[in-house]
Design a protein around this nucleic acid. Structure first.
Length: 472
RNA sequence: GCCGGGGUGGCCGAACGGUUCAGGCGGCAGCCUGCAGAGCUGCUCUAUAUGGGUUCAAUUCCCAUCCCCGGCUCCA
């Protein structure tokens, strides 16, 4: 039984989509004013896992993830570089898409940009004004009057009165009636320079949250099955989306709200403002492999804060290596014609894995099941109890599990890796030295190969080689 | 101040109130190996923040205290 923790109800709920077998899912994407850091990427690795798991369970997922390509920060950044908004944001969009590819994150079918949906947003704002939920402030901007939306605060469990009283709510420096009202449409100001749209609402640009209301409605309909985002989006962004969408349609906006927790570094949230972040590129430059980084980001359940550190990354690298050695071993089982029947083991592991994942993507528990499989099967191989048919069964399960995890793809596609002629010759020479009992020479050659990243292992079936820190 | 989440072995991280508290990483030892690597086995002191309570039984429920993180402002 697939269950997710719904931020709205603060409970785990059995997942049931509106239409059988189909999931309409919207993910808040990135504001593209800078390169994504690992904290950002965690959010998208989580979404990827979620989507993969839904697909594993047989759902067809219709997934939309937006780009916020106009806001204060993008405008500021663009001006600083003396370029256009489009050029400025394109750079970061491209970089972000590359990051996703590197981390083996499957892209959403639709990745709309806010700036390409101004018309849709204007339409929605007009409806809100007709319903007198929106009003024009003294500065010409249009605001949402949250006091008119009864349910305001239902997602974040905040009370409007407390918002008003909150010590940190800015004094009303704009033209809105209440400090807690939020902008649907921001009137042009000289600081915006070239960035504005001439619309029936006036010259200006959209507020932040209206884009998600507009784009989700356009591509997915009035009620979504799942909406994801970081916990920092709960208030005010998602609260505002609800207020907009539900006021407009009169229908429930989202059935399941899923929010991922933050990645921490040295006990604090990884973020741009604290300048305590690492980008994917930084880590790749330090020679960490993309799949280890994916595994690292994946290996803690999405609702838990967890800390980035290099030890953890190293551990992920090693854990992954364990999988690789295991798969390697599986493909070379021999010396056992009729082994033990492992059907039951396979079944148990599969069940453990699936039950854990079904339980709000409890990945740690799920991975424990996979590691148990590795251990059990390794033990079988050691005792020569695994026959080729059993190996095939295990491999099939690993392939299936990997559809959800997406960490082993490169292992199977990597096969093209070949040794250089020099390395091959060296291995041959070492074999000759070994059979002659010349250990000194054999070890010398082995060390030499190691220096160029080739690791040799002597096994009963002969010498084997592997590339250290495979770039996978 | 208000509202959330959390404190489990060297590190990371699971756990319907109940057989020895998963699993990973690291370290040590043994088996295997010419050695190494991989793998397996075992160990890593009384591991569940503290103090009470409920219960036959509590990591798990309740209360109090201490500490950490987050949201209340643009932010994945």
């Amino acid at each position: 039984m697939l269950r997710f923790y719904n931020t709205m109800t603060r409970k785990k709920e059995v997942f049931k989509p509106l239409k059988k077998g189909k999931v309409q899912m919207y993910s808040c994407g990135l504001t593209v004013y800078d390169y994504a850091h690992l904290g950002n990427l965690r959010a998208y690795v989580f979404v990827d896992l979620l989507k993969r798991w839904l697909e594993y369970r047989g759902f067809h997922v219709n997934h939309v993830m937006n780009f916020t390509d106009v806001d204060d920060k993008t405008i500021k950044g663009m001006q600083k570089e003396g370029t256009t908004l489009k050029q400025y944001t394109r750079k970061y969009i491209t970089a972000f898409l590359t990051d996703l590819e590197t981390l083996n994150v499957n892209k959403a079918q639709i990745m709309p940009k806010a700036t390409a949906h101004i018309r849709e947003m204007v339409e929605l704002i007009k409806i809100l004004m007709e319903k007198s939920l929106g009003y024009k402030g003294s500065d010409g901007s249009i605001y949402y009057d949250i006091s008119k939306f009864e349910d305001y605060g239902k997602l974040s469990k905040m009370k409007i009165e407390e918002l008003k009283a909150g010590a940190r709510v800015k004094v009303d420096e704009y033209g809105k009636d209440q400090a807690s009202d939020f902008a649907l449409w921001k009137a042009w100001s000289p600081a915006d320079g070239e960035v504005f749209w001439d619309t029936p609402l006036g010259k200006g640009r959209p507020g932040w949250s209206i884009e998600c209301s507009a784009m989700s409605m356009k591509y997915l309909g009035e009620t979504l099955d799942i909406h994801t985002g970081g916990v920092d989006n709960i208030f005010p962004h998602h609260e505002n989306e609800i207020a907009q969408s539900e006021a407009i349609t009169g229908k429930k906006f989202v059935n399941y709200w899923l929010h991922n927790e933050h990645l921490l570094i040295k006990g604090r949230r990884m973020g741009k403002s604290l300048k305590n972040f690492h980008t994917l590129k930084d880590l790749l430059r330090m020679n960490y492999s993309p799949m280890a980084i994916r595994f690292f980001l994946l290996s803690t359940q999405y609702r838990k804060q967890f800390s980035f550190n290099f030890e953890g990354l190293e551990a992920a690298e090693n854990a992954l290596q364990r999988f690789y050695s295991f798969l390697d071993r599986l493909e070379n089982v021999g010396g056992c014609e009729v082994g033990e029947d492992i059907t039951e083991l396979i079944y148990t592991i599969e069940k453990d894995f699936e039950e854990a994942m079904d339980d709000d993507l409890d990945i740690s528990r799920a991975l424990a099941a996979v590691f148990n499989l590795v251990k059990e099967v390794n033990s079988h191989i050691d005792k020569k109890l695994l026959d080729p048919r059993g190996a095939e069964q295990v491999k099939n399960l690993m392939v299936k599990i990997n559809k959800a995890l997406g960490i082993l793809d490169h292992f199977w596609s990597r096969k093209k890796e070949k040794l250089s002629k020099e390395a091959e010759d060296l291995i041959k020479k070492r074999e000759e030295a070994r059979s002659a009992g010349d250990w000194k020479k054999a070890d010398y050659i082995r060390n030499k190969l190691r220096e160029i990243g080739i690791i040799l292992e002597d096994t009963p079936e002969g010498v084997k080689w592997r590339i250290e820190k495979q770039s996978i």
